[in-house]
Amino acid sequence: MAPLLLAATPAMAEPVTVVTRSTGTTYVDPAALEALQPGNDISYASPLAYELTLSSTFDWSGPLPEREQWAGQVDSDTVIDFRVGDLHWQYAGTASGNAVLYTPSFSGGDGYQHEIWLDPSDTTHGYALKFEYFLIAPAGSLGPGGPLMQLVVDGTGMQPRFAFTAYRSIPEYTFAYRMGADAGTFSLMVLSPVPEPAQWVLLVTSLLAGTLALRRRAGRANA
Rank of each mutant, 00 (worst) to 15 (best):
P3K: 09
L4E: 15
L4T: 15
L5E: 10
L6W: 03
A8M: 11
T9M: 10
P10H: 09
P10V: 11
A11F: 12
M12G: 05
A13T: 14
E14R: 15
P15F: 08
V16E: 00
T17E: 06
T17V: 12
T17A: 09
R21Y: 07
G24R: 00
T25Y: 05
Y27A: 15
D29L: 08
P30W: 09
E34Y: 11
L36E: 00
Q37P: 02
P38W: 11
Y44C: 09
A45V: 12
S46E: 14
P47L: 09
A49K: 08
A49D: 07
L54R: 05
S55P: 02
T57A: 08
D59H: 12
S61L: 14
L64W: 06
L64N: 06
P65C: 13
E66D: 15
R67D: 07
W70M: 14
A71T: 10
A71W: 03
A71Q: 06
A71E: 03
Q73E: 15
Q73D: 06
Q73K: 09
S76R: 03
T78F: 00
I80C: 00
D81E: 10
F82C: 04
R83M: 06
V84H: 00
H88L: 08
Q90S: 10
G97M: 03
N98A: 14
A99G: 10
L101G: 00
Y102I: 12
T103W: 11
T103P: 07
P104N: 09
S107D: 08
D110L: 08
G111R: 02
Y112T: 04
Q113E: 12
Q113T: 13
E115V: 11
L118D: 01
P120F: 07
G126V: 08
Y127G: 00
A128H: 03
P138K: 11
A139C: 10
A139S: 14
A139P: 05
L142N: 05
G143W: 08
P144Q: 13
P147S: 12
L151C: 11
G155D: 05
T156I: 15
Q159E: 11
P160K: 05
R161P: 01
A163W: 03
A163V: 04
A163I: 06
T165F: 00
A166T: 01
A166Q: 01
R168P: 04
I170P: 03
Y177V: 06
M179P: 00
M179F: 15
A181N: 04
A183V: 04
A183I: 03
A183L: 01
G184H: 02
T185P: 00
S187W: 02
L188A: 00
L188R: 01
E196R: 15
P197W: 10
P197D: 07
A198P: 01
T205N: 15
T205L: 14
T205S: 14
S206H: 10
A213D: 12
A213N: 13
A213Y: 11
R215M: 15
G219P: 04
R220N: 12
